[in-house]
Nucleic acid binder design. Sequence first.
DNA 1: CTGATGACTATAG
DNA 2: CCTATAGCCATCA
Length: 121
Amino acid sequence: MAGAQAERYQRIFSTIRDVPAGCVASYGQIAEIAGIPRGARQVGTALRSLPQGHDVPWHRILHSAGTIAFPQGSRAFREQKKRLEAEGVPVLAGRVDMRKYRWQPDLDELLWKPGPAWDER
DNA sequence: CTGATGACTATAG
DNA sequence: CCTATAGCCATCA
């Protein structure tokens, strides 16, 4: 099977795939749900390694303050903003209103499938 | 192994 | 709101 780090990446991507369209999450939030405390940077690292053709909704991941991680005007920035607005998430001054669009998974959703946060069981 | 890097974050001024 | 700083930790050269 895969090494520990590959498995960690899988948990990160899996968690991100759980973020529904029209919602967003922060890097730290994804890390925490994926069972990686203080792993915000690692979420960014994992996303950076994504190959082409992946199905991970990377555009729904933002800084904890709701800002897009890329420099304003950069290609990635425009792409992310475009994708977010395409699914109804407004981006003003490079920022999303986290109070309104932050994804808040409920218990059922977390239990839906095997979650790393519950691996101890 | 060592040091630099970065799609992070919280805090302080 | 902004910049600066200090933690953070997997990756990479």
